[in-house]
Design a protein around this nucleic acid. Structure first.
Lengths: 144, 144
DNA sequence: CGGGCAGTCATACTTTAGGGTGATTTTGTA
DNA sequence: TACAAAATCACCCTAAAGTATGACTGCCCG
């Protein structure tokens, strides 16, 4: 393709040169033609050979993680807040909506024990109610 | 800028023409120079004036959304369970751990009103406690 | 081996939540 | 406009939750 174009170009130049010899004083026309042709060549070359700008668009595909999937306990915060294993258990059951009585039954301990645990949990999480505790614990990655 | 370039170009051409007259048989050199200059001009013009080629590459990037981000309310379930807007509001505040008294203050209504709403919510969600309501509402995509 | 911690339990008390019932007012819509 | 749903509020009562305090028991660790 390029070779053919160059051949045509050379032929044109020869032809123009010939015209220049025949018709005197047409040097300006000849130069003008050359200028136009090579300007065109330049434009064509530039458009053809210039490397395209690569624009990379990152399309964010949202992957919904439904809390429990891929959940990992943040042991760091657990130790920092000084929350014990038992307290975490109570917290988990709390998050499931169980009452203190139900939690007591589930863990085979008395209601009072769960109440004590609850109070300790609220103190450590710096909250006042179980609903706040659950909310905060989820945000801190303590429970799923 | 363009004007100055053209002036320089014309001057060069004149000079080359003069050289052509002095040194005989240098027409080829003259033509060659013209060709090179105008090819360059063409390239320059093309690069300068053409709209930049943009090759767009779409890359899908998985973004993990942790439940609340990118949350969309499931209106279907909302209507199916016949839960009103106001009840949803109460539910949302409940999920933040607010007490009925605090919710009442936030919504500028009485405590009794919130109690009524709460009861209705529990009935519609088929639960007995606020903690369960929050848990279920989150699973049903009613709240973030 | 004794102190500290986690876990357990209790009692007493206050606060909040929840159930039931009834009633009034807004509001959207046929 | 008239009707139904939604929203509002009240009262009474019970259940659950939360606070405070004290006590007992294993268990680990310096």
């Amino acid at each position: 393709m390029y070779g053919a174009s160059l051949a045509v170009m050379l032929f044109l130049m020869r032809w123009l040169e010939y015209r220049f010899i025949i018709i005197d004083n047409s040097l300006e026309i000849y130069i003008g033609a050359i200028a136009i042709i090579f300007t065109s060549l330049g434009v064509w070359l530039a458009l053809k050979l210039s490397s395209p700008k690569v624009k990379t668009i990152h399309v964010e595909k949202e992957v919904y993680v439904y809390s429990n999937e891929g959940f990992v306990l943040d042991e760091t915060i657990l130790t920092r807040l000084n929350i014990s294993r038992r307290e975490l258990e109570v917290l988990q059951l709390m998050a499931e909506g169980l009452s203190n009585q139900e939690i007591a039954g589930r863990l085979f301990v008395s209601l009072n024990t769960i109440k004590t645990h609850s109070s300790n949990i609220f103190g450590k999480l710096e909250v006042d109610r179980r609903t706040q505790a659950v909310d905060k614990a989820k945000k801190l990655n303590l429970i799923a």
